[in-house]
Design a protein around this nucleic acid. Structure first.
Lengths: 197, 197
DNA sequence: TTGTAGGTTGTAACATAGTTATTTCAGGGC
DNA sequence: GCCCTGAAATAACTATGTTACAACCTACAA
């Protein structure tokens, strides 16, 4: 597994990625992936075993983009600000890579279950969130507590809002961005250490 | 549309419901629904138009269960307590009807889009949440603000946690129930009106 | 009672999906 | 030159949503 891909293999992944982005999970068929990459369907099976093997790569690619988005926030010197920007980057990435996000978090490809390797990549993305929590704690801006536990609380909340927005579930006409900020406020409020000056 | 169902129609819905519960969205096929209900596939098409027609009913049934769960909390006299219990009932219902929940919120049936009637039912479930917010405000326990906007913030947060739990995304070994309570704490903290005694 | 219109049913067929079997073929080794 | 091996393409198999079609009811009017 995970051995280097030849040119044809990369072409297949590129084709799959393009299909997923353009038409979502329903347009992602083995035949079309192969056709777009200029080979027969066997090309998929000899290189990736089956369709899930391709999806596994897309799954990881999605998490890599998410990680890049969260790391792209950088380090302003104020961890609290960085955490806020990280939350915003999370949403931005999810909207820009909506079809990826649904494969990653909503099981948009029926029957697909990520491999252990893919799960490890998804955990790495979560780790970025936990790191930010720890930095806020070290700066005295967040209350004490397990950074991973706190990160999970944050993750769940922002994920839920992103998810509802992606599937178009809107109860009110409110701006989703505003609502999202409101939710980030709530998190910040809940985890912030009371200032002592 | 929405006219009364004959016995066969009800049998089809029961069969579909059983299949969804037992095997999830991937086991939900027109042929099996019809076979379990004891008729040919045409029985589905003459009554529901197509597969999505059946799924539409399951979608609404799922929201009806969610509404029943949230209403089952009742009225203890303390809106804040009721809100907490409502949040817990939401999670409990989602776990007990996991396959339904994924059809409702994760688009588990590829290509399915809910009808206007189904969307109305989903909005009704959201309304229950907004009502609880309003009650907390009237009791002076919640800060002022648009109840629907606040309910959407709550909804997103609890939905995200439920969703991550349903698809098995766990970064730590923490108890999901505890994490969920932690998140409910955050919401309560953020929306609670400072006491003035 | 009879005939007709309209809907329902069961069977079979169609298109498309993932996957597998079979054939084809190019490149080396003898 | 002949044969073996491995990969590719073609075709086939199974399952799925859907549709076509003929047979069969079921009203309802004459």
């Amino acid at each position: 597994m995970a051995r280097a891909l030849d040119e044809q293999g990369q072409a297949l992944l590129d084709a799959a990625s393009g299909l997923l982005a353009a038409e979502g999970a329903t347009g992602l068929t083995v035949r079309r992936i192969a056709a777009d990459a200029g080979c027969s369907t066997m090309g998929v099976y000899s290189r990736f075993g089956n369709k899930d093997g391709v999806v596994d790569h897309l799954y990881m690619e999605g998490f890599r983009r998410l990680i890049a988005a969260m790391e792209g926030v950088g380090d302003s010197g104020d961890p609290l600000t960085d955490m806020r920007r990280c939350g915003q980057a999370y949403r931005r990435n999810a909207l820009e890579n909506a079809t990826y996000y649904l494969v990653m978090f909503a099981r948009a490809v029926p029957g697909f279950v990520p491999s252990d390797e893919a799960k490890a990549v998804s955990l790495a993305s979560f780790q970025r969130m936990a790191d930010r929590v720890r930095k806020c704690q070290e700066a005295g801006q967040y209350i004490d507590g397990s950074p991973t536990a706190m990160a999970e609380v944050i993750w769940g909340a922002i994920h839920g809002h992103v998810m509802l927005e992606l599937v178009g579930m809107r109860a009110t006409g409110d701006d989703p961005a505003e609502r999202y900020e409101h939710m980030l406020d709530l998190i910040e409020q809940g985890f912030r250490r009371p200032e002592r000056d």
